[in-house]
Design a protein around this nucleic acid. Structure first.
Lengths: 363, 363
DNA sequence: CTGCGGTGCTAATCCGCATTAGCAGCGACT
DNA sequence: AGTCGCTGCTAATGCGGATTAGCACCGCAG
């Protein structure tokens, strides 16, 4: 039987070539429209190959393409904190949504590095089985990122974009201007007459956390100098004992509390209701994040960080970095989006301006 | 300079080999612990190679591994409906969550095929640039799936698992037993005295939609034969004009309405409140899905499909199919999870039992 | 001294594709 | 007749790793 070519399972360029009576190279040339320059394929041959391609439903093996050095339109997505616990979900959901939208528009697939092992609380990107190189580039999400890993990535020349500002040389990122947004809210409170601020903040070394803190501190310093700063009661928290934090806020004599996360704000508000503390008359509340899924019963005066847009912008930036036709300027590698604020209903002038919120002041 | 090997960028096995004074093959053997059989590597050499490996932080290129025919622990995830629009989010979120958890436990990465083009309302998996083969196997999600595509996948021998029952030979799936769950709720309503049912259902050819419908029809037929079926008012809907559907329900004289989606139920309930229709006294409501994000103000009597577990089970099944050491029996390729129901507060005995809910009956 | 069965490794090949150098054939021109 | 230049294609190579056939060496039995 002369027709007994061994019947290989998958459809490869070689098989197409055999069927069309050309060489594998020709098939590749047709597929990639490289019919210029040295290689010339007349229309007739081209059609013949395309016909076979169509009939067989050929699809290039992305692994082979990647190995041969071409991009494969895959964007890696790495989350430093495990993504599925419910607490993290609110954090990641809008980001992933933005990434997804952008990826769909760009025609990219997304590779989620769910396999990264958790070492001590935080996940490791560069472990021995990482599939990083399967992606053309990578998006990094998370509150805290391992700076050593970031440096390694920069050194390796691997294309990536961090979501959120990063304090590491050479790291491209898209961030939100938390500092200005926070300062604006604090400034408003100041103008309303508040002088004694409590600040319940996340105890983390993440850059965004730092930026929000800077917003509070800078604005107070700007308004009232060291004296104003001295009035600030900063309460670092892990969220594990908000009852204690609430007590600290109440005993601080603050007329307004700046709360870093929506969930804490929600719970503090519940304490206030329980204890008959009038928000905002007796205690103003400023929240530096958006409510999680399901929204909130309380219309907090707060930041409204454009997190979905943030992620989409980062995705677009990464795509541009990966596009060989696109020369991304050095200055474009770091972008900062403004952070809008929402007026809300939890900030008014303090009950007795000038009085340090003594109980009798609220009558 | 004898040491002037050209300094290649990336760390490959060849470089490791040069540094350790062995051959590339040896490095590969050490890496894969293939020190049995023909190939023998003494501890000393092994250690030497491992040392270099550690020092350089070598990571295998997954594309090369894949090309060489080994699995790479990547699970594809394909959603037939675009995943990011808000309506779809409630549908996909619990599924993706389950997949993510399972993948993390299994040490797998996830490849989201966000690039699939939308052809007419539904996305195409098998397009010309699909990166399917990068994954070891694939999970398929969606209400309706293209049966031709499924058949093609089966024919190609590509490992995949559908989430939800599929009416195509040879397609492995994990499903939820919507039929029994729905029948149970309908049965309860029947026993409470309801005889005239309205059924507001999705107008789709999806198998799960069919199963829920079967639950309604079968149970009614079982309870009251053709006569009961004749009393059923089925209202197919696209959700685009619920006001009209609501009118249809009201004029049908039904004492209870079975609603297929949580969102519709929510909106119908709002109509009921607006129109002063007492739920459940005047109109019972049975919902065949769980409320979306943010929960619901109304505690509907409803199905509580274990969607996260469903997805996790499908992921585990796929992983087992991909494990060469695991012989998955034919019978295990199709699994059905039971569907719990929630009593809720929207189903009681009809106002005037026996009376066909004439307006004067509700006084 | 020869043969023989381990031991310790390496050369070579393949996976599927992209890419490049270059060959054969042909008409035109000198 | 020679050769130049163009056309239309293919052979060959490399990407990085897995795998296999088999080579060189050594100690030991015969």
């Amino acid at each position: 039987m002369s027709t007994s070519q061994t019947p290989p399972r998958r459809i490869t360029q070689r098989r197409i070539a055999a069927l069309a009576g050309v060489s594998q190279a020709t098939v590749s040339l047709v597929l990639n429209d490289k019919a210029d320059g040295d290689a010339r394929i007349p229309e007739e041959t081209r059609e013949r190959v395309l016909k076979v391609l169509r009939e067989t439903g050929y699809v290039a093996d992305p692994a082979a393409r990647r190995l041969a050095g071409v991009g494969n339109k895959i964007l890696g997505v790495f989350t430093y904190e495990p993504a599925f616990p419910t607490e993290s979900r609110d954090f990641y959901a809008p980001l992933l949504s933005g990434i997804e939208q952008a990826a769909e528009n760009l025609g990219c697939d997304l590779l989620l590095f769910t396999s990264a092992p958790v070492v001590n609380g935080t996940r490791r990107l560069l472990h021995e089985h990482n599939r990083l190189r399967l992606a053309d580039g990578c998006l990094l999400l998370g509150v805290e990122m391992d700076h050593a890993e970031l440096e390694r990535l920069v050194a390796d020349g691997f294309p990536f974009v961090a979501i959120g500002r990063r304090d590491v040389d050479g790291v491209p990122y898209v961030a939100i201007d938390y500092t200005s947004g926070t300062a604006r809210l604090v400034g408003e409170a100041w103008e309303l007459g508040h002088r004694r601020f409590a600040y319940l903040h996340v105890d983390s070394r993440g850059e965004s956390v730092f930026d929000r803190r800077a917003g509070v501190l800078d604005e107070l310093a700007r308004r009232g100098g060291d004296a104003a700063l001295a009035e600030l009661v900063a309460i670092p928290s892990l969220g594990d004992d908000l009852e204690r934090d609430w007590a600290a806020i109440r005993s601080s004599g603050a007329t307004v509390v700046v709360v870093e996360t929506a969930e804490w704000a929600e719970r503090l508000h519940a304490f206030a209701v329980r204890d008959g503390v009038d928000v905002p008359a007796e205690l103003g509340m400023i929240v530096l994040a958006e409510p999680g899924r399901g929204g909130s019963r309380v219309e907090f005066t707060r930041l409204s960080p454009p997190r979905t847009e943030l992620a989409a912008a980062a995705t677009s930036l990464l795509a541009r970095m990966l596009d060989p036709d696109d020369r991304v300027e050095q200055g474009e590698l770091r972008q900062t989006l403004p952070c809008p604020t929402l007026a809300g209903a939890t900030l008014v002038a303090p009950a007795a301006s000038g009085t340090r919120s003594t109980p009798e002041g609220s009558a």
